[in-house]
Design a binder for these strands. Structure first.
Lengths: 360, 360
DNA sequence: CGATCCTATGTATACGTATTCATCGTTGCA
DNA sequence: TGCAACGATGAATACGTATACATAGGATCG
């Protein structure tokens, strides 16, 4: 390798000098190769290779006003979000974009850090479950940034939005339960204030009501395993156990299943249990949960497409609002037939001879 | 708000004009506020506020040759890595840095995408479990980039490295098992070629040998739940069951536990089981796994510190190699006392009256 | 009271690239 | 052969900021 002085990084000017052409031609060679003559192109590529030239994306961004970077603001905790982030990353690199990630614990951090993020002139920004002040939203859009709200139905209409069809999904789960003869259902939400939670409950309650079943609401307090685990105690102490518990998220459902088990109850023998999200762990044999699988790859793809700002930015059109349908996963936790197989008094799992579906 | 023409973003020049000062003073006001007179500062801040000025980090980076961005290259799959990413993110924003994330499925993608990432002139780059060609490593360091290998012991000595003490951790688990009277132990690794896997087996084998116990090696084939689940079949078909199974990672261990359970075996009654990593799910009541908890926050903090390149870059010193000790988590899966409580033939989980430790 | 130092600010330039405009040689066609 | 059109390249400039240097006051001290 040639020693590029080790201090001064090699620039397009250096390459130009080495190849005996002008800097402009070198630049063209890396952005629009088709307009430069084949032999000059070879000379330039050879020189660039020899010097170890790497184009400077910072300078390019400054000139072209496009960074090719898309940001994502995502809750730090929760299996669901950790899962989604990797989809974002993969989709973006497939499009030649980079992902600038910011995960937050507390909503208060968001507005603060958003200021710092804005300095980087991102092409797009995906806001996942983040409550941003509307004033700030407006300011951000003025900069030409492509905002996308991800699984945050509240924002639909204000900002382009991508979300799973929560209401229809919950409705499908409810229909599934109704078909199994459930008439008394308990809906265990995570946080009642969350718009996704409300939409899911709405879908469940509406559908169950149409079948004559009841659907009470209960709040776990958080979208976490522990919240579900604790909620199980409350459920067990009810006057009468419901036929089924619809849990608002898989992670909470896992806690519920384990909490019930600790009290000697098991699904589906004593009560049916469903989740929502379709986490990889739902397919694990230890839970084998009936749930609504979010098509995470499709959701991410749509979000990334909107955030990449490739589309015509005719700012008069109403913000597009993509809603994708999920798919039902039938797991052991609602398999009525198996309830008989388990011997009463022995809530053993060894009897469930089901293979886990390949955990992705 | 003033209408900034909606097309031309407002720059420091605009603010300077509005405040009646020069552009240089505006710049100083945002980088070294202490050198500008208090009253001029107020004037500038007022003008900036009024115009909605946001400093342009791209231009700043071009001039100052520092982007304040740190990259991370991380495997896309696996609960462990998804967990680690959020720690990176949080630590970096705490230091005023941004995280550019790239998650890969296949090692082949890495070298390809790394070229694109290099164009962004990152301040540092954290390589997690990524096999990079040494030639490329050398080229990258020449650019002044602060490289850090994360949990990739192979790289220690070549590149600054941060890793948990795999050997000592496995040794501690082994001591724990030996103390419980185990003499025939099976070590179930993920991928034998992985350096972390080898280090863990080494620690386990060494310590067990010193107590007179045997320690055979077996390979699951991948660091996944399914691999562990399938390996359980092989284990069950052994001539004689080992006293304990040391699994090389928590995720594989979860699969093993569920796989054993399907065959009517349970931990700790029939065989003891340990994991490695300390995932949040290890604390879930459904598994309650004995494992070695990696101090993810400390590891991330060290990696971030090295990657931020704050330290003196006297390139002659040997690359620092940080090794952090993990801590043992004693779970139900090695609680010998409970083995008696479970009625033989009924591998029920309802009897484990343990509270899950708060899942963080 | 003049020389000196310090503080606050203005002027000018560089960071590395993309792109517009001009230039020059070549080809095609009449 | 002459002129237009074209293809390839060079020269020049702008993107928005940080900073070295210069400068103008004011304070300090002898």
């Amino acid at each position: 390798m040639v020693r590029p002085d080790r201090k001064r990084p090699v620039t397009s000017v250096d390459v130009a000098a080495a190849a005996g052409v002008s800097q402009a031609t070198v630049a063209r060679c890396f952005t629009t190769p088709e307009v430069v003559a084949p032999d000059t192109r070879l000379k330039i590529e050879a020189a660039a290779d020899r010097l170890g030239y790497v184009p400077n994306a910072i300078a390019r961004s400054l000139k072209s006003q496009r960074t090719n970077i898309v940001g994502a603001v995502v809750p730090a905790l929760g299996e669901y979000w950790q899962n989604v982030v990797t989809y974002f990353s993969r989709r973006l690199t497939a499009r030649g974009r980079q992902l600038l990630l910011f995960s937050f614990l507390d909503h208060a951090e968001v507005n603060e850090t958003l200021e710092a993020v804005m300095q980087y002139r991102l092409d797009g920004l995906i806001l996942a479950s983040a409550n941003i002040a509307e004033a700030q939203l407006a300011r951000m859009r003025q900069t030409g940034l492509s905002l996308v709200a991800f699984n945050h139905p509240d924002a639909a209409g204000i900002v382009p939005s991508v979300t799973v069809d929560n209401e229809a999904g919950a409705s499908e789960l409810a229909r599934h339960l109704a078909g199994l003869g459930c008439t008394r259902v308990l809906y265990l939400g995570g946080v009642a204030a969350a718009s996704t939670d409300r939409a899911r409950f709405r879908g469940a309650a509406r559908t169950l009501a149409s079948t004559g079943a009841t659907c009470n609401y209960m709040e776990a307090g958080a979208f976490t395993y522990d919240a579900g685990y604790r909620a199980a105690d409350t459920v067990v102490n009810l006057d009468r156990l419901p036929d089924a518990i619809m849990v608002g998220s898989d992670e909470v459902a896992f806690g519920m299943l384990d909490g019930l088990r600790r009290r000697g109850l098991t699904a589906p023998a004593d009560v049916l249990v469903t989740g929502f999200d379709g986490l990889p762990q739902a397919s694990w044999a230890g839970y084998d949960l009936t749930t609504l699988v979010q098509p995470a790859d499709q959701l991410a793809e749509h979000a990334v497409e909107l955030a990449s700002g490739d589309g015509s930015d005719s700012s008069d059109a109403p913000p597009p609002s993509v809603v994708v349908a999920g798919t039902l996963r039938r797991g052991l936790t609602t398999r009525k037939g198996d309830a008989g197989r388990a011997r009463p008094g022995s809530y053993s799992r060894r009897n469930c001879g089901t293979e886990p579906s390949a955990g992705r």
